[in-house]
Design a protein around this nucleic acid. Structure first.
Lengths: 112, 112
DNA sequence: ATCGTCTATCGTCGATAGACGATGGACGTT
DNA sequence: AACGTCCATCGTCTATCGACGATAGACGAT
């Protein structure tokens, strides 16, 4: 689901605000940012891989991954016994565009 | 506070991750996004103005504004009895750049 | 001086986030 | 079959968020 970069920011759009806020919330945790950076460097990572990188409990990492998946920033695929997580670059780019759109709106609707 | 688009995302960089996460956290609430959009349409707004727009209690709006100010996204200046809040477009642009940098890093460090 | 307005802060409350350990299921290996 | 590995989920705990009403301070107006 794409948040169009510069269309529906015009109206009040509590809906779009909520959608963007939800995605930003998923990004607004240092561990999840680190996870994304780690995922970006590898084709697909299993949970344990991320755990070894982050110095957090496995259950904690699993939850962070779940948050990222539910926000649509990371794709999930179950392999045999492993779970593979892969970064969704398009979704990430969509967020970047949404933020840029918001900033754009805020800068262009300058009053004077 | 620039997060260089492609330098310190290589190392673990928990510091930059925390800084970005903090700013995104300020953005990750629908009411605060709405406040930003409202502020962008006016030169400077007082608290009551935002209250009338948002259908939230005055104390709640005041707290949201405080969050935005502390995150550096909104500038604060005390007038006589009013408090004037003005959007900080540069800071907002900085966040946009940071997010773009993160996404860029995630897309460029593509493995294969 | 008194009243009304605007605002920040305090105190409270419920809900949620974030962390962990423990557990159990699925699967590969021996 | 028995064990080890990987993982998601559950339960728990603490801390924080988000909302509100109430309050008090600052100021203008009367």
């Amino acid at each position: 689901m794409d948040v169009s970069p510069s269309s529906d920011f015009n109206e009040c759009g509590s809906a779009s605000a909520k959608a963007l806020a939800a995605k930003l919330a998923a990004l607004s945790h240092p561990a999840r940012i680190e996870i994304l950076k780690h995922l970006s460097g590898n084709r697909a990572c299993c949970c344990k891989d991320v755990v070894q990188q982050l110095d957090l409990a496995q259950s904690t990492v699993s939850q962070h991954l779940k948050v990222l998946v539910e926000a649509g920033l990371v794709r999930f695929s179950a392999e045999r016994q492993r779970s593979l997580y892969e970064i969704d670059r398009e979704a990430l780019a969509g967020i970047s565009a949404s933020v840029a759109g918001l900033v754009d709106t805020c800068c262009s609707s300058r009053p004077a």
